[in-house]
Design a protein around this nucleic acid. Structure first.
Length: 420
DNA sequence: TCTGGGGTCCTAGGACCC
DNA sequence: TCTGGGGTCCTAGGACCC
């Protein structure tokens, strides 16, 4: 058996932990620059606020129903996520963290009452973190996902659902919309609709060759998983990322080269820090920027520039300098840039790197020490404490009108309790 | 006025080899 | 008229996930 532990309405739930006055009230959390609703409490969903809805389009609902609105606060969500993970690790032999708000648990070989286990785990998460968590247990990951969704739909399950008997699975799949199945995206769902397939059950009754030819291997895997045959590996060991990207939309469009360089230098610094944390070397870097696609009357452009590092690099300075140079090559005067980013591609482990025949080891040693110093100073005193001049104040500028305090990650924001 | 960010995997097709 | 066969590697783009 596999379990999926899924935090309900995660970002909204995190905000509520420190604002219990918002329990039972509609809450939404916005994307960067306060653009779209990316998390909604059940009450907000009931008001018809859709996932990804731009704030300006739902302004009416928000005002009429006094919806609590929050800017995203990833320091808080990341910290709450770690707390939930800690509870899960205590309670399962092996944990695969799948995303910031979901984790699979490997329960193979256990001979226990899985329904009681699921409910107890949900209760434990709530007790230690105040985050509501839905725990679904089933013979495959795809079915476990469905089981956890059932917990959200039926409060009487008390956060845990064990789904394993074939007659129970059939009963659930018969009413489960095929587009809600993990692995069935928008495109496949539309194709299935055309073929008259509306429920997960109907999908499992399809001919495997038909599934294979229409939806390729990933589709066939989903088909098998729904029929109870595990096909998706349990991956408790996290591999190093194959690419690392930092990109942002700008609250205000950028028309000057210098401003764009400052932003991109900060993206690059953020990328190289992540790169070093996972001990990788970057062989290739891409820098890109484009105008606002929603402004149909404005002149549009999208530029990108590729830089290769033949020997690979994880050097703060080399990376930032190369990104700024690439920006200068790519920039075109007369356009208003709305979004830009830096991507590190073709990553290799930095262990056992081969020195270039022509490199100057004295210079390399010096640069390596500088990069190490930047890491440790910024780790101790905070991101951006030591930075390059081209980064300006070192902060990526974003509109965040409704941000909550960093309750759990900044001394100055820790909530106080008064005892009488 | 205002529209997110960061990933992975798979496949088809082109370029190349003998 | 007729135009081989078998393979690898790489890349771009699609589809999916949260």
């Amino acid at each position: 058996m596999f379990a999926l532990a899924d935090c309900n309405n995660f970002f909204a739930s995190c905000e509520r932990v420190f604002r219990p006055d918002l329990n039972g009230k509609p809450v939404i959390v916005l994307s960067n620059n306060d653009g779209c609703a990316v998390a909604r409490s059940n009450e907000a969903k009931a008001l018809g606020i859709k996932m990804g809805a731009p704030l300006f389009q739902i302004k009416d609902i928000v005002e009429r129903h006094d919806v609590a609105v929050f800017s995203s606060n990833f320091d808080l969500y990341g910290d709450m996520s770690r707390r939930v993970q800690a509870v899960l690790r205590e309670s399962a032999p092996s944990v695969e963290v799948y995303s910031i708000d979901e984790a699979f648990l490997d329960l193979r070989g256990l001979d226990i009452d899985f329904d009681a286990y699921a409910k107890a785990l949900s209760r434990k998460c709530w007790k230690y973190t105040s985050i509501p968590v839905s725990v679904g247990v089933a013979p495959t990951k795809t079915l476990a996902k469905i089981a956890s969704k059932l917990c959200k739909k039926y409060p009487k399950l008390r956060g845990g659902c064990y789904m394993h008997r074939s007659e129970d699975i059939e009963k659930v799949l018969r009413t489960y919309p095929v587009e809600d199945v993990w692995g069935i995206g928008r495109r496949s769902a539309a194709k299935l609709m055309d073929a008259g397939i509306r429920t997960a059950w109907q999908f499992t009754r399809m001919n495997p060759e038909t599934v294979r030819s229409a939806f390729a291997l990933p589709g066939l895997r989903t088909w098998k998983e729904l029929r109870g045959e595990p096909c998706i590996e349990f991956e408790d060991i996290v591999d190093a990322k194959q690419s690392i990207c930092v990109s942002r939309s700008f609250a205000k469009e950028i028309t000057e080269l210098g401003d764009l360089c400052t932003q991109i230098a900060n993206f690059a610094e953020s990328v190289v820090s992540k790169l070093r944390r996972q001990r990788s070397l970057c062989m290739e870097m891409a820098v890109f920027a484009f105008t606002n696609r929603f402004k149909e009357n404005a002149p549009q452009t999208r530029g990108s520039s590729l830089v290769t590092f033949p020997d690979g690099t994880d050097d703060h300075k080399a990376f930032v300098v190369a990104a700024v140079k690439a920006t200068r090559e790519m920039f075109r005067q007369g356009y208003a840039y709305k979004k830009a980013g830096v991507v590190a591609l073709r990553l290799e482990p930095s262990e056992g790197r081969t020195a270039s025949l022509f490199s100057d080891t004295a210079v390399e040693d010096r640069d390596a020490r500088l990069s190490g110093a930047i890491d440790s100073i910024n780790a101790t005193f905070g991101k951006g404490t030591l930075r390059f001049g081209v980064q300006g104040d070192g902060r990526i500028k974003m509109a965040r009108e409704h941000q909550s305090p960093h309750y759990t990650t900044q001394w100055s924001d820790i909530p106080g309790v008064s005892v009488k």
